[in-house]
């Protein structure tokens, strides 16, 4: 199944106007400076925000169509969405969190083992590390058997070493999954490492030059000035 989206929305400082598609077994990495509208795009895909106009189609299902007033609620889109933090429910232990919306409860134990947090399943989220929480959040998203996986800077609150480890695990996981994955990051190293496809987003528009400019560090455009405020990350991996 392929997800195709094309929509517009007026944000505070600019208008978001973008169209893209992501095929199954594909990981599309959306990259760009912070505040460029990446999270808003993801939230619109998830159904948590409404575009002003446009269309989102998943396979042969229409999720959003402003012309025909179609807006499928997030509950019915059947997707996985992992964000930086706050995915897990504080009152539940890791197992119950991962099993929260599981299609098959039996799978949950295996998933936790695959993500190496099987021994922590009785702990509450505040009793484990940030990396372990994000592993659990991915288990939670996968256990519901999503048709599309959205990852919004899932590792950016973690330290560099944990982040690198999880990045590698995600890459190997990707090969086993058949659904499309959309991954948001502002980290170029991460993007180049993970992406099958890159979608550079700058101020709500697709900007294919941005990545090149960032790599060349041409201090010519406003976008680069904005990006300069972000931590520079070496491309040497």
């Amino acid at each position: 199944m392929t997800v195709e989206a094309s929509f517009k929305k007026q944000l505070k400082y600019f208008e978001l106007d973008i169209s893209f598609s992501c095929a199954e077994e594909n990981m599309m990495v959306m990259i760009g400076p912070s505040g460029g509208g990446k999270t808003t795009i993801i939230r619109m895909l998830a159904g948590l925000e409404k575009p002003k106009e446009g269309k989102i189609v998943f396979g042969d299902e229409v999720w959003f169509d402003s012309l025909h007033h179609i807006n499928v609620p997030p509950q019915e889109r059947c997707l996985g969405y992992v964000f930086q933090d706050y995915n897990l429910f504080p009152h539940l232990n890791l197992f119950d969190n991962a099993a929260f919306a599981a299609v098959e409860k039996k799978e949950v134990g295996e998933l936790l083992e695959v993500f190496k947090i099987g021994h922590l399943k009785k702990r509450k989220p505040h009793m484990v590390s940030g990396g372990e929480r994000q592993r659990c959040a991915i288990c939670q998203a996968l256990a519901r058997r999503p048709r599309l996986l959205l990852l919004d800077e899932p590792f950016s609150a973690l330290d560099a070493i944990t982040r690198r480890g999880l990045r590698e695990e995600l890459k190997s996981l990707k090969d086993k999954m058949s659904f499309p994955i959309i991954y948001v990051t502002h980290d170029i190293t991460e993007a180049l490492y993970l992406a099958d496809e890159l979608l550079p987003v700058v101020e709500g528009k697709m900007d294919n030059q941005w990545l090149q400019k960032m790599i060349n560090r041409e201090p010519s455009t406003e976008a680069v000035l904005r990006a300069a405020r972000e931590p520079r990350l070496t491309l040497v991996y």
């Binding site: 998830a46 159904g47 948590l48 609620p73 997030p74 509950q75 019915e76 889109r77 059947c78 997707l79 996985g80 969405y81 964000f83 706050y86 995915n87 429910f89 504080p90 009152h91 539940l92 929260f100 919306a101 939670q140 519901r144």
Partner: peptide, 23 residues
């Protein structure tokens, strides 16, 4: 974000009230 997470995981508003908000 906890509520949104529950919605994305397929919980209706009512189910979210009982399974997330109340506890």
């Amino acid at each position: 974000r906890l509520l949104e997470s529950a919605y994305v995981l397929g919980l209706s508003k009512k189910a979210t009230f009982f399974r997330v908000i109340i506890p």
